[in-house]
Design a protein around this nucleic acid. Sequence first.
DNA 1: CCATGTATAATTGTATACAATAATACAATC
DNA 2: GATTGTATTATTGTATACAATTATACATGG
Lengths: 213, 213
Amino acid sequence: MVEEFYGSLREKVFLQLEEDIISGKYKAGQKLTENMLSQNLKVSRTPVREAIRQLELEGLVESIPNKAIIVTGITHEDIEDIYEIRISIEGLAARRAAKSITEEELERLKEITDLQEFYTIRQDMKQLVKTDGDFHETIFRASGSKTLKNILSTFHHNLKKARSDSFGRPVRAKAVLEEHRDIYGALRNRDSIKAEHFMIIHVRNARNRLLGK
Amino acid sequence: MVEEFYGSLREKVFLQLEEDIISGKYKAGQKLTENMLSQNLKVSRTPVREAIRQLELEGLVESIPNKAIIVTGITHEDIEDIYEIRISIEGLAARRAAKSITEEELERLKEITDLQEFYTIRQDMKQLVKTDGDFHETIFRASGSKTLKNILSTFHHNLKKARSDSFGRPVRAKAVLEEHRDIYGALRNRDSIKAEHFMIIHVRNARNRLLGK
DNA sequence: CCATGTATAATTGTATACAATAATACAATC
DNA sequence: GATTGTATTATTGTATACAATTATACATGG
């Protein structure tokens, strides 16, 4: 079943290019042209250009005036950086969320972790990546900080591929589930200290699982 | 003397709108239209749209499909968030920079701090804001981390106005200069521990000077 | 053979025309 | 009077034409 896409062409192009760069279809250093992209994606250059401007700000491409668009991509070092920064600030997001999270958001977290348990048993890696993303996104939205939300959502985007590889073994998925439950429990009790603590541990473990350290 | 602008129209529009939002000319909640902006700035809608997409990613505006562009702006809370996050990660940038900074970049930092001393004596606040920005930008570029550079350059952009207000008194400018010299010295000695330490202190002080805590 | 100038092509930058969508005003109906 | 339907308007979304800039190929002169 093919999933329909209802957004604008620009959004479609943006997501597609992001996917193609993160997945490695377009490799670092590769030169892209607007014509080439608009022909490939069967849209005009206008939505392509708008998408390029956004990718530029995300650091996935570099646009050289009147010359070309160069793919920057996500390097191994970038991933390490992102985890290191996440360790610093995602705990902050959890601490904030413990104070401002709503009952609806807590309900949603519960639903997500239940779903996650279901998919962990089924070993459905694709869905696990999605629920993991949803879990974190709900928390940094609940933090009430636009700045935290902006940074962390970009990070999670850029880690998408790397994380999907990380769910390779069920034992890891189970550890992730337990860590999420710890964080959820702390948020439910509105214990900001524990929420921060568990989140820092979780992100650090996630990094170690991914980078094998 | 009017400063000439040599970049693209899109860049000009982006910087102008960013300035207008950060300075408060366009207030939070205000509705903008592409036509209005293109008429004001005497350019077509194309560069305006591209600029809007970037501002959207920076979180300065919110674009509602087929309806309008709503100004989000920078709130007092956003500024507090930005400083709190900067305290977490700008020290990291300094630590990295201590390891990877080049002789040229060190030379540049020296020039910047010398200039800063000059402007501190002259009490030229406008130039002090600029040199302060240059100092930090040089360091997080020297960190060699694309991710750190991206985040911190956005932060410094968004803090532009707030910081220009903070340089109001010469005693403060002098404190900033001393802190910069400490950081420079640590980087010159490639002492990553001290570089991180002094940077954290500096950002914390900057926040306190700005927010009066 | 190398340097330089020039014409050509490729690419991005901008403007404009038109399409799609959502809001609004207003009339018709109950 | 309230509600619903419809025409109009306003706004964003997309495509295309053209301008400006840069790269490339090639010829020309030393």
